[in-house]
Write a protein that binds this DNA or RNA. Structure first.
Lengths: 139, 139
DNA sequence: ATCGCACCTGTAGTAACTATAGGATCAAGG
DNA sequence: CCTTGATCCTATAGTTACTACAGGTGCGAT
């Protein structure tokens, strides 16, 4: 039973691998619904919170910005016709991911070339520094 | 003369494309040396500031974290034998870039597959949502 | 000399958390 | 049953890297 239906914040944190302070923050920021409370005022979470946090974690893991996650979760609740909008958000995100990959590839090429060059020219001047100083290192 | 030797903060901002408030912030955070002042207390920048800001901008553009930039600039000043340390920072950064690319590639694959699938299965359930809900979409 | 823009300092806001302080509650052991 | 220690509560502050504002002064152009 990895899914008991009554957990404390600490248990929820351990269950989901999300920092227990972060859980409070998620509640404050409206991304996680406020759970019922015990007589003494302690939060009592259940399966749906485990699921929602899992959703958030996976989405963040896929690089969706918190804003996007909020947007998706919001749609989820509204019920309208979420698929279209979710797809739209996902497609847009996919584009961002692709352009980020392209950027990083370029950076990678430049950096690796420079670091290699640094290994060759023993001392003279640092190729990395030259790159950062805006010099043309293509020689 | 794209490089006059006496510029105001606004001019420096325009010259480098860096927000003029950010220039103040860089000074406070120790990444940009404090310039001399005019009689009335206004900052008077010069070429070296233009260069340093350019350096910072390029490094940030290459994805170096501000911490790393500070580290590199610090070495620059200390003079020790910067090349080795700079190379080390750059190589480490390169590794990070590469692993980020790998992560993003995986995300890209998953997302694009899912979005495509979403285009096919007209309505039923949203494939993107199913992915985020942790279901196995590989079918 | 004056007008208005740019500058000054200092503070607050932003996002997304993380951490702390001081006090209350819960659950387990004696 | 009652104590004790872990966990929880709220509220506030710190973090990073900026951005924005407020209220007041300097600077350059007319």
């Amino acid at each position: 039973m990895t899914n008991p239906n009554s957990l404390s914040r600490g248990q929820l944190a351990r269950e989901t691998g999300i920092n227990s302070e972060t859980i409070l923050y998620y509640e404050k920021s409206g991304i996680l619904p406020a759970p019922p409370r015990s007589a003494g005022g302690h939060r009592v979470y259940n399966d749906t919170h485990v699921q929602t946090l899992g959703f958030i974690k996976r989405a963040r893991g896929l690089g969706f910005a918190p804003k996007e996650v909020r947007a998706i979760l919001g749609l989820h609740d509204e019920g309208d016709q979420p698929c279209e909008k979710v797809k739209q958000i996902a497609a847009q995100h996919l584009e961002q991911v692709r352009s980020k990959i392209a950027d990083l590839r370029q950076i990678e090429g430049l950096l690796s070339k420079t670091v290699d060059q640094c290994a060759v020219e023993t001392d003279d001047q640092c190729a990395v520094l030259e790159l950062l100083e805006g010099k043309d290192i293509s020689r």
